[in-house]
Amino acid sequence: MMHRARRRGDKPPLPIAALAFVCALFLLLPLVALVLRAPWGRLVEEFARPEIRAALLLSLRVSLAATFLSLLLGVPLAWLLARWDFPGRSFVRGVALLPLVLPPVVGGVALLLVLGRRGLVGGLLEDLFGIRLFGTTAGVVVAETFVALPFLILTVEAALRSLDIRYEDAAATLGASAWTVFRRITLPAVLPALGAGAVLAWARALGEFGATITFAGNLPGRTQTIPLAVYVELQRGLDGAIALSLVLVVISLTVIVAMRDRLVSSP
């Protein structure tokens, strides 16, 4: 593919340049506003408040747990989708990607119907194992995993597909069982994609709002993650909400900078 920038001296047509400028401003200004309007002087105090500290810590713990769960469940499904031709494969792939386009709040409602106290599986979980998901921290992990999984599956499946399967053939002729091949050949080869997928999934889990509030509720210290706390803080005044938002912005920017080569292939 040829990729060429125009010469520096040339000027783009005016209407295009104008609209592009508006677009860039539209994306940039909200961030600038957040930074300008941030209560810099009282930032330390804001973060010291127990409800905000609790939200930060909870978000960190829960999003990492959701990322781990996504890896544990998502990698095998990605592998199956990439390597095995089973009936209904495209249906399963569609289902795996559904949370990507589904409004998170709908996802939350759907999770309630399955894993809620009176849900299909939720009742069983509670009766047999005493596990309650609705209104608990575990419930937040489930909600975040639900929305984060597609990012992981998509990234890892694409990497598995682009892998030359003959490397696995070569390993098999050297006496490696299917499990050894997966562990020593396939997994190391897709490690970069695995990392990228995990970071994307983590960022998505961290920002999750709709499914969490619907399925797990909004209980400070138990289910109130940063996005939920931002929402609650907004009712009180702007400072707390801005402080928490800044945290999410910094994390998002870090992710984008760290992954810029994987997200967009810039020249």
Partner: peptide, 20 residues
Amino acid sequence: VPTEQRRVGLLFQDNLLFQH
């Protein structure tokens, strides 16, 4: 008999050494 139990060696045109 599955490949890994065959004791059949295969050398490919492009060697396919494990890069990692």
